[in-house]
Amino acid sequence: MEKIVLQAQRRTLERTAKALRREGYLPAVMYGAHFPSTPILLDAHNAGLKLAKVSSSTLVYIELDGETHAALVREKQRDYIKNRLLHVDFQVVSLTEKIRTTVSLHFEGVSPAVKDYNGVVVTSLDEVEVEALPQDLPERIVVDLSKLARIGDTIHVRDLEVAKGVKVLNDPDEVVVVVSTTTEEVEAPAEGELSEPEVIERGKKEEEVE
């Protein structure tokens, strides 16, 4: 992914956020373990374009007062009616200290169990928590569905493929995805997990008999 660099300036509290937005600015804040909470301003149009597809594990670089700071986006407040950002929280990170964050799972491929046995691929997780140096954080973790050959085949957290230096913190035995004959046959998730499994792929329905 192309390196994301944002030009920022310090924000004084003399003017309201609403007034600043009218002038084309995006209010934001930078903070970190070794960085004091600092209100900043970004160009709203430029920041909106660059942050559109940024995830919680995407490293961005903020230039402020002649210095460049590596940061992660921790929160984005958005006006969904006008489709614009209202405020962004950035966590300034050290490139020499490991951090924890969530990374989304991306499902690819076609399960042979779907084609050959009319199976249903059901997901139990759509993201996992990882620990790594900021520059080693993956944008996403790919899950290969083509490995699910038969009904009952399962991919667990321990089966996820991640780069060296990246540690997945979820329970290794936790189910990521399973092939079932119907969604009802999937074991109900424990409290705190997804309330309903998500069906992401299924085989052709049998033709109805008239």
Rank of each mutant, 00 (worst) to 15 (best):
M1D: 07
E129Q: 12
P112F: 03
T68F: 12
A44H: 03
P189T: 05
Q77C: 00
E108K: 14
E67N: 13
P112E: 15
I4C: 01
V130S: 03
T154A: 06
A19E: 12
Y25R: 02
I151G: 11
Q77A: 04
V121I: 13
L6Q: 04
R158T: 06
R21F: 04
N46L: 12
E2I: 14
Y80E: 15
V54C: 06
H87R: 08
R78V: 11
T16H: 04
E23K: 05
A19F: 06
V110R: 06
T183Q: 09
P172A: 05
P134L: 08
L125C: 03
V175D: 01
H34C: 10
V157D: 02
T181L: 10
A71G: 08
K204Q: 05
G66K: 03
K76M: 06
E191S: 11
N170M: 10
E67S: 09
L160A: 07
V29G: 05
E63T: 15
N83Y: 14
D43G: 03
R11K: 02
A19G: 11
E185Y: 15
H34A: 10
T12M: 02
T58S: 14
K98S: 07
K18Y: 02
R100W: 13
T154L: 06
L49Q: 15
E67M: 13
N118F: 04
T181N: 10
K76C: 01
E184W: 05
F107H: 13
E187P: 07
